[in-house]
Simulated assay, not measured.
Amino acid sequence: MAEFNKDDYLNDLPDVDDFAADAATSAPAGSAPDADASAPEDDTAAPASEAAAAGDQADAPASDGSTAEGESAENEDTLTPLGKAKQEAAEYLEALQRERAEFINYRNRAAKEQERFRQHGIIDVLTALLPALDDIDRIREHSEMDDSFKAVSAKIDKAFEKFGVEKFGEKGEEFDPTRHDAILHKPDPTADKEIVDTVVEAGYRIGDRVIRAARVVVASPQA
Rank of each mutant, 00 (worst) to 15 (best):
K6A: 13
D17F: 14
D17R: 07
D18E: 15
D18L: 06
A20N: 08
A29P: 02
P40A: 12
D42K: 14
A45Y: 05
Q57P: 02
G65I: 01
E69F: 03
N75W: 12
L79A: 05
L82S: 11
G83A: 04
Q87C: 14
F103Y: 14
R109D: 12
A111H: 04
K112Y: 03
K112D: 07
Q114N: 10
F117L: 06
R118L: 09
H120V: 04
I123V: 02
D124I: 05
V125S: 11
V125A: 10
L126Q: 01
L130Q: 15
L130N: 11
L130R: 10
A132F: 13
A132K: 11
L133D: 01
I136V: 09
D137H: 13
I139R: 08
R140M: 06
V152H: 15
S153W: 05
D157L: 09
K158R: 09
A159D: 08
E161C: 01
F168W: 00
K171P: 07
G172A: 05
K186M: 08
P189E: 11
T190E: 13
A191R: 04
D192W: 07
V199D: 00
E201F: 02
I206W: 00
V210E: 03
V218F: 08
A219R: 00
S220H: 13
P221Y: 11
Q222E: 14
